[in-house]
Amino acid sequence: MPAASTTLRMLAVSVIASLTVTGCQALDDAGRAIGRSDLVNDLAARLDRALELTYSADYQLPGGQTASIAQAQQPARSAYTYPGGRLTVTDEATTRCETTGARTTCTLEAPPAPNSKPSVAVFTEAKRRGLVTPPVVVGMLTEAALDPDAVITQSDTTVAGRHATCVDVRQAAGNFTACVTTEGALGSFTGQVDGKPVELALSRYRETVDQTAFDLPPGAGVVDRRTADS
C-alpha cells in the first residue's frame, strides 16, 4: 500500500519538524522518557511495516468478551471483529455487519479510494464496541505528541509471547497506555476513548489468516449501498 506508507511518513516528518525544539520529558517511575519525535518515528515505522504484513490477532476484552483483527495482502484487505459486529475493508467494499439476537445484517458501502487507507471515522463503531483499532491509536498518540504538556514515557514488555514497546501518556485530554509489538501489531491498550474506558490485550498472534475472515457471515442479510455512494 504505497500511498498509505507515504502518508504516514509525511505525517511523521511534519510532526517531527514542529516538535524538534520540545526535547524530552522528565524521567518518572513509568519508564524512560522519550522525545515526541522519537515516538512518531517509531510508530510510523512500525505501522508502515504492519501495513505490508499478513497476520491475525486475537484480543481479550473486559467481561470475557473478545475481538480480533485479520489483515492480508495481494489484494490488501482487513477485518475487525468485535462484540456484536464486524467491519471488513477490501478493494470491493467497506462492510459493516451488526448482529442483533440471531440475525446479522451487513451494509456494503464504497471502498476506500485506490491505494489509500480507510479514514479513522470508518472505525467508529468498532471503537464504540471496545475494539480500539491501530489507526485510532495512531491518531491518539500523534495528538499526544503535539501536546506540549503531555508526559510520554516508554517501557518494554511481552504480550502474548511477543516483545512490545509501551507508551504511557499523561495529559489533560485523558491518560492512556498503548503497547505495540515489534511486528507492528497493537499489543494492548488501556485508557479513555471518547470519554469511555477501554481496555484490551493481545491474547494470540499468528502470521497467517483464515481467508474466510473477509467473507460475509453465513445467512447475513445484505444491504448494498455502493451504488448510492458512488
Score class of each variant (00 low, 15 high):
Thr100Asn: 15
Gly101Glu: 14
Ala102Gly: 04
Ala102Cys: 04
Thr105Gly: 02
Thr107Tyr: 08
Ala110Met: 11
Ala113Gln: 11
Ala113Asn: 05
Asn115Ile: 04
Ser116Asn: 11
Ser116Pro: 02
Lys117Trp: 10
Val120Lys: 00
Val120Gly: 04
Ala121Thr: 06
Ala121Gln: 09
Val122Tyr: 07
Phe123Ser: 02
Thr124Gln: 10
Thr124Cys: 01
Ala126Tyr: 01
Arg129Gly: 00
Gly130Met: 03
Leu131Ile: 05
Pro134Met: 07
Pro134Trp: 03
Pro135His: 07
Val136Ala: 11
Val138Glu: 14
Val138Trp: 11
Met140Ile: 07
Leu141Ala: 11
Ala145Gln: 09
Leu146Gln: 15
Asp147Thr: 11
Pro148Met: 05
Val151Leu: 13
Thr153Tyr: 11
Ser155Ala: 15
Asp156Asn: 12
Asp156Met: 04
Arg162Leu: 14
Arg162Lys: 12
His163Glu: 14
His163Thr: 09
Ala164Asn: 04
Thr165Cys: 06
Val167Asn: 12
Val167Tyr: 15
Asp168Asn: 14
Val169Ser: 09
Val169Glu: 12
Arg170Gly: 02
Gln171Met: 04
Gln171Leu: 03
Ala173Ile: 01
Asn175Val: 06
Asn175Glu: 13
Thr177Ile: 10
Val180Asp: 06
Thr182Gln: 12
Thr182Gly: 07
Ala185Phe: 03
Thr190Ser: 12
Thr190Ala: 09
Thr190Gly: 13
Val193Trp: 01
Asp194Gly: 13
Gly195Trp: 01
Gly195Lys: 03
Gly195Glu: 02
Ala201Glu: 14
